[in-house]
Amino acid sequence: MPSGIARGLPAAGGIGLKPEHFREILDTQPELGFFEIHAENYMVAGGPFHHYLTRIRERHALSIHGVGLSIGGAEPLDEAHLDRLAALLERYQPESFSEHLAWSSHGGAFLNDLLPLPYHAATLDRVCAHIDRVQERLQRCMLLENPASYVEFAASTMTETEFIAEVVRRTGCGLLLDVNNVYVACVNHHRDPRAYIRALPLPAVGEIHLAGFACDVDAAGAPLLIDSHGAPVAQAVWELYEFALDRLGPMPTLIERDNDIPALPELLAEACRAQRMMRARVGAADEVCA
């Protein structure tokens, strides 16, 4: 089993790489900590996606973020998918690889969402076995992302943070702290997001995600936040991010945007804002971002 947390990404702001921005990125070569891609989007044989990623990767640090491994799935891991992932990692040698505490495949169908699981001894064993297998196959430590969720399970016997802490302890994996997910899940389940962060194994954190959410209400009219990745980062999430930074120090921080993709400068500005918050905490002058 590999040891140590992948801390290869620079402690700076990054953004998700979107095909809409391929050319502009090559033309303008923006100052940026790193790019992140969804692994599955690049599991194609050739063409423009690989053309652009190859060129962008030459100039920037890269995080590969899987959304289809179904680590929380009741079924065995999809070895063919793991092989595709290994090939992609081999090709692009990313500084970091991460996946989700969630499931997305069942009975041969891929459901294309990050689905929740109950937290108890049996699911803990299964998730740990899956992460052990992933780390063994990929020959590297992965970061596990905390989920955004809308329901909880009567069968759960552990809190989410207890579950995550145990997974990290048993598998040696790192943690991708998605601050937006913390906020969304805590609002949805009426918990204190700061207490949630304090309860996580913070020394294992290797990256942070920030994103925007959408607002809805549940059957009783209580707020229900949807992890939409379709809006700018909310003020409450920026504040929670500062709370996390105070405990973690500077961290590779991704602005995640997958829907209603804005112009590149808008995303870069959010990444700069994250970077300013980091720099302010280490007392550095604010010279990088305008």
């Binding site: 929740p116 809308y150 329901v151 909880e152 009567a154 389940h189 549940d218 059957a219 009783a220 229900l224």
Partner: peptide, 18 residues
């Protein structure tokens, strides 16, 4: 079945998000 909500509300609309 087996879903829980903090306020005891019907989990239907929450499941509907998925």
């Amino acid at each position: 079945p087996g879903l829980r909500t903090w306020n005891g509300s019907d989990p239907g609309p929450r499941f509907a998000v998925y």
